[in-house]
Every structure is written in structure tokens, then in C-alpha cells.
Computed example of a mutant assay.
Amino acid sequence: MKYVMQSFSRLDQRYVVDKAEGHCSCPAFPREGWCKHLEAVGAYRPRKVNLTSRPSFSQALSGLVKSIRVRNIQEAVYWLGYCWGFRERINGTQFRTVRRLLIGAAEDGHSVSVMEQMAEVFQPLLAKDVQLEKVVAELVRICKVPNWWHPASGGPDYIYAGMIASREMLYHREAIQVQEALGQMERAIDAGDSAKALRWAMLVGNVESGLSLMATRLLGIATVRNHQVALRLLRNIYLRHGAKLGGDNNFITQAVWWLCGGDSPVVDELPSVSDEEATGLLDAARSMYPHVIPGWCCDGIHCAGTDVRYAGMWDRMYAVCRQFEYYQRLDPNDEWLEASFYSMDGHLLLRRP
């Protein structure tokens, strides 16, 4: 697929981007062999990988994330257990694993009750003597609620708005004044324009201390409006664990979306998970050893790999929404129809050559 795309820095410049061949006519491509225009249309430089039953921690963590994303609970439990095995060998891996579950509660779900539950147990799950079954239970709880690719979650609207916002950012690369940007975000929230509000939120999030400043501003907006869902996201989760979330903005962007009028029928769903269920899944996972990591778990962006379908960028996530719409299920083994699933909405395309 070829596109004539407007330059991100010069309004009078056009480039021919060949997605299938991985080629662009911009001056950066001959120097680097890759460019931001290719990434903007959903093409990423693959990082060769040897898929084995003993992948690296980063690959296994990606396997955990992707399995949660597609709601393959048994696969997710397997990779959780595999990641857990690194605790004694690599410092910080327990923290990174548990943090990914906290992030995943928002990045791959719209139940604020599940997010609050994960925020409540976050610290206890970091204890050295915590039982793995307790961690498994929280993973299962996340997976029991429909993800954003399922219409029952209200999530496709959120993902589409985020995709448009991220693409608008490409064409507005000037430096921002944080307070002015926060004001623009608030005006967009008042107008109910979720894509524009998310764009300003993303821009502020890229600035040092931007997330904390934005959380404070959003808390004020939510308080004035008495918006209970946004207040829960901000007070009970982000402001409680923001320092440990690093630069992750999932709870912030969800709060922005809700304040713009977003809605999800699953917001208060809190599935129960019995000890027996968690133990049974863990026992089944242990019986799967050794288990070669599937290619769809390795995106080449967060770890070595070549399959970008389920990577956590807005454009790729919206493509997954369209995959579910087409097949009425989400199975990595189904044929991936890139031309049908990948949306170019929000890009400034002049024509196709």
C-alpha cells in the first residue's frame, strides 16, 4: 500500500510512503533505513527473534501483556508464572511484573472497580513471600471483564479517539506551554471533544512533571463536576501510585475520556476469583512447560519480534477492534487483513499513487 503523506514538519512537503515495501521518499529514510512516516502508517522495523521455550524476561512480559490483551487467560497465567521465575535472578522483575498488571487493568480494561482492586493489592503483591496464586487471581479478574475491543465494554470509542489524538500530535510538533495546554485540554473537555482533549493530554504528558500537573488539573475538573468515575481514577489509583507508574498515562487518559462523556457498561464490574480457580489455572500452566512463546506475543517494539498486531499503540489497538468486528471473536490464528483492519483516519493523505 502506497500513500502520499504530508510532511510532519513542512506543510508544503509531500512524501510517498510504501507501507508494503517499507520505503519512504523522505530524506531521513536513506540515512536511517527507516523513518517516522513508516511508523505513522503502522509499519515497524522488525527485530529478528528466535522463538524458544526459554525467552528473555522482556519477551515473557510481552507474552503476559499480549495474552491479557486478547483475553487468553491460560496463556497469560503461563507467562505470569514464567516471569515470576526471574525474581531470584534479576532484580526488579517482581516489581515490573506486578506493575504491568496494575497498568494492564487500565490499558486493557474499563472496569474502574477492577483497577481499584488492583491498586489496593499492588503493594501486598510486591511482598517477597506473596503466594503466586494471589497474583494469578488479580490477572484472572482483569481478564474476566470485556476488553476495549469488545463493544460490550464501550472501548472502541475510547481507542478511536486516542488514535485520532495521537495522529493529530504528529502534525503539531511545536513546543507547548504547559498551562496553556492544560487550558486547551479543559476547553476540549467542556466541549465533549474527546480526541482533542486526549491530544492535549498526551502533549502535556510528554513534558517533565506534566502527568502530575495534569492529574491535579483533572482532579479539580472532576471535583467541580462531581464526576465520580474520574474522581475514582484519579484519587484512588493515579494519585496513589503515580510515582511508581513512571510515565504511564493510562489512568489519566481514561479520566479525560470519561470527563468528555465517555461511558462503559463494565465500569463497576468486579468478578470474583476463587482460590481453587487460581490454583487450578496455575497447575495447568505448570503442566505446559516447556512452552515456546507464540510469535503474536513478540511485537518487535517492546521486545524482539516481528508481529505488531497486538502492540499497545493506539492505531494497532483500533485495528484489533476492527478485527473483532470482522470475525466477532479475537483469535491470533485468524487471517490478519491489514488493508481492512488498519485505519488511516486522522492522517493527512493527499492521494494514493
Rank of each mutant, 00 (worst) to 15 (best):
C298I: 04
P156R: 03
A285I: 01
P156S: 08
R167V: 07
R10W: 05
S9T: 12
Y318D: 11
R329V: 06
Q74I: 04
M1K: 13
W314S: 12
W296K: 02
P294S: 02
S62V: 06
L139H: 05
Y326A: 09
T253M: 09
G312C: 14
A243G: 14
M202F: 14
L132I: 15
H37D: 05
V41S: 10
I103W: 00
A191P: 09
G247W: 09
D334W: 00
S67A: 15
E338Y: 07
W258C: 09
M185I: 08
M313F: 14
L234Q: 01
M5C: 13
L170A: 00
I189E: 04
R235W: 08
I252H: 08
M317T: 11
C143T: 12
E107N: 10
V98W: 00
C35D: 09
T216S: 14
C297F: 04
C24K: 07
D12A: 03
Q177K: 12
W257R: 03
H227R: 03
Y342F: 15
V145D: 09
A119D: 02
R47L: 10
S166G: 08
F251Q: 08
P294Y: 00
A165W: 09
D12G: 07
W257P: 04
V292G: 07
V49W: 01
I142L: 15
V266Q: 11
M1N: 13
S194P: 05
P55F: 03
D275G: 14
G81L: 04
R141G: 06
A60V: 10
G346C: 06
V207L: 00
L126V: 03
A28E: 13
S53K: 12
P124C: 04
A311G: 13
L245F: 01
G42T: 02
R232Q: 08
E32W: 10
Q228L: 06
V267P: 10
A161F: 03
G305R: 03
Q184C: 05
H172L: 02
G210W: 03
R225M: 02
L126K: 08
K244S: 13
P156I: 10
R87V: 01
P290C: 08
S113H: 10
G295Y: 01
